[in-house]
Design a protein around this nucleic acid. Structure first.
Lengths: 284, 284
DNA sequence: AGGTTTATGAAACTCTTGTTTCAGTAATTA
DNA sequence: TAATTACTGAAACAAGAGTTTCATAAACCT
């Protein structure tokens, strides 16, 4: 679909005067030229006077040239619905190139978030907002991501804890949790057995649990009463990419911020200021 | 590769004043905004005065703002639109919706990887492959990401260590490093002072260093002799998103795998088998 | 702390851009 | 061909953009 300006011109092209048409044609030929080019210049390119340019835009129904430019800018920013980016097919042996990487990542992100129901996200945010304490868990490589999510959440609300990777001390760590708490688990395939243990515990304690996982584990997690945030993590070769998992963590934190409103803002500024002071201290 | 303006800013970023940096950062984050936006507006977005804007452009070596715009336009004409997916504009107060989140993430990924020169990536992979040991560092929220990258790299080659977040024990940790080692640092703005210390150390020890960072710190890192992997991390609101950072880590690991070939494969399978056995043990 | 340097935005100023007016030209009609 | 109408660009005008100046504030030295 063309821009609104282009459509408007096409409709009325015949009604325009000779020199208006000259300019109009130029605009049709190079629609992207409107951004960053002044009306005077456009007129110059088309070989007509500034006055004609002013008249043309008015005749097309705009109040101003500024009006035209604003609309063009807005339209560029709104660049229609995201188009499906297919997952590239790559022979197993070929080296990963940067463009392929980009395409894989983009495809996973798009699938993940076009599929995500915003009511599920909001429910998750609601649970995190209402919880007395929040526990974040991730095993193996997901531990780093869990730590990341923990920091993100801790900036926004108090009482966010990272569950140790050492399963043997879970009893101590989880002993004090109750139905008022929330548990966020990051776990993609291969699904660690421990996670099931943890989810079972959560279910019996009536701990609200949110699981960020990949499509193969959605069912399992849901069956244990967890709210599931599903992330696409596949690549054309055998590895996984956790980019969409991190992105989901980021979105979850954003959703919590929205949910908490002012309260989150206050805490965030407090922390930012403290951090700044620490940096300053070290400078001296 | 970035625009000439972006390069110029990155080179001189630290020499700029506080509010010049605010504006410069905005320009780095949204390079496409220069077209079709007046200097006054840009200054407004960045929260600085028109005067500062004028000064910035002069300080960067342009004679005029007009000069800047002309060059930007010329560059776009030479290389096509800066990016297909623009960063959406969002009012500061609006809640983050899922589609907006998706668009932000996609825009950052695309910018990051369309700009990434594959020879730089390969050089980084080469250094990681050739190094005797690899040290991975990340402070604050980046520590989680560093841990993630560490795991990723450790699956593929031996001798990959995570540097503790506790700066006071760095002397011990880094004591045994030498010119044969490689250091990977993950640090986005606000740039922690400690990172500079670490980079200085690396430079004097002739430690090869790779820095994963955001556009505002590229110059600083390069000047300390590091190989820089530049990641776009901005959002239309005030926070940052580290999704592209994680993705970069992922790509770096992939590149290393490609570089190591068979050797990586063997180690990876070994580790996968071990992990499986552990899981099995616990089932019983 | 006091003095010096540096950085900053408000406001004055200059220059460019876009609009409007108007007189001259071209096209149209009788 | 003369009268009428429509179109056009030059120039006057108004609005706004970008630059420079300057007083004030912040940072930095002793």
């Amino acid at each position: 679909m063309g821009t609104r300006l282009a459509l408007r011109i096409q409709e009325r092209f015949e009604d325009l005067t000779r020199s208006e048409q000259k300019l109009a044609q130029f605009l049709l030929d190079r629609p992207d030229e409107i951004l960053g080019t002044s009306a005077t210049e456009l007129a110059g390119f088309a070989g007509v006077s500034k006055a004609t340019a002013a008249r043309l835009f008015r005749n097309l129904g705009y109040s101003d040239f500024n009006d035209v430019r604003l609309q063009a800018r807005e339209e560029r920013n709104r660049t229609g619905p995201v188009q499906q980016i297919p997952m590239p097919q790559v022979s197993a042996t070929a080296a990963t190139t940067v463009p392929v990487h980009l395409q894989v990542e983009t495809a996973n992100l798009i699938r993940t978030f076009e599929e995500l129901r915003s009511d599920v996200l909001n429910q998750a945010a609601e649970q995190l907002a209402a919880a007395g304490r929040v526990w974040v868990a991730g095993l193996g490589i997901e531990n780093g991501l869990a730590q990341y999510l923990r920091t993100l959440l801790a900036r926004v609300r108090p009482g966010v804890h990272l569950i140790s990777e050492n399963a043997s001390i879970w009893p101590e760590e989880l002993a004090s949790t109750g139905p008022n708490d929330a548990l966020v688990i990051i776990a993609v395939r291969p699904w660690p057995q421990h996670i099931s243990t943890m989810l079972n515990f959560a279910k019996t304690t009536r701990l609200k649990s949110i699981v960020i996982t990949d499509p193969t584990n959605v069912g399992k997690a849901q069956r244990k009463g967890a709210l599931v945030l599903n992330c696409h993590v596949s690549t054309p070769w055998s590895e996984l990419t956790q980019t969409s998992v991190l992105s989901m963590a980021q979105l979850l934190a954003s959703a919590l911020i929205n949910r908490l409103g002012q309260k989150a803002e206050i805490r965030r500024n407090l922390i930012a200021n403290l951090a700044e002071e620490f940096e300053d201290d070290r400078d001296r």
